[in-house]
């Protein structure tokens, strides 16, 4: 009986160790992704360092599915820059170009008007009711870099959640079953 008990014990201990190792490696993947994201936030000074273009309002410069790298510095905002801004009452940030800037002499505050390159008119229709200008606090960052197509991954995942779950499940299974 002692021999059987020993074997059972050894099998049990191996399984526990394996499960633990898999758990740790899964945790490593998740935390390293988090570390990279937070580090990017620190370096760029923007609360979302990478955004995906969702609309065609900046075509042909930016198409749907392209990704933009943002940077938020203390530098004043100037005409021509492509900024990402949040409008009160809208959840999704907008990426458009600054066409007018008025900077106050005394306080340094700015009034900014934006327009999408592919849109006919300026953005006052998109702003909150009665809002004529964007202020500094609406602006999340300015676009400095550009990478085409990569954002399609997130667009597909948000629009077809099933694919997301299948992908997460498959990856999870792969991590759990892999021996090395």
């Amino acid at each position: 009986m002692g021999w059987i008990g020993e074997t059972v014990d050894s099998i049990k201990s191996i399984q526990i160790r394996q499960v633990l190792t898999q758990g740790v490696s899964l945790g490593m993947i998740v935390t390293s992704a988090l570390i990279i994201w937070k580090a990017l936030m620190c370096i760029t000074g923007s609360e979302s360092p990478v955004v995906v273009v969702l609309s065609g309002s900046m075509e042909p410069g930016f198409k749907r599915g392209d990704i933009l790298f943002l940077h938020m510095s203390k530098d004043p905002i100037r005409a021509g820059e492509i900024v990402v801004f949040n409008v009160d009452g809208r959840e999704i940030p907008i990426v458009h170009r600054v066409i007018k800037v008025h900077e106050r002499e005394d306080t340094g505050e700015v009034d900014v008007l934006t327009k999408g390159d592919n849109n006919y008119g300026d953005d006052r229709l998109l702003y909150a009711q009665g809002q004529l200008w964007l202020q500094r606090h609406h602006i999340m960052g300015r676009a400095v870099g550009f990478l085409p197509y990569v954002g399609w991954v997130t667009i597909i995942m948000t629009e077809k959640p099933i694919i997301k779950y299948i992908l997460i499940g498959a990856l999870g299974l792969l991590v759990i079953t892999s021996k090395e």
Binding site: P60, G61, R78, A79, G80, R97, I99, K100, V101, H102, E103, R104, E105, G108, D117
Partner: peptide, 26 residues
């Protein structure tokens, strides 16, 4: 592509900088 625009820039007593895009093109 190159996005090009013409801006009028001037100072007023109230504003230290005014930039107004007058024309642009892709």
């Amino acid at each position: 592509q190159v996005f090009v625009f013409l801006a009028a820039e001037y100072e007023t007593p109230k504003n230290s900088l005014n930039q107004i895009s007058l024309w642009d093109g892709i």
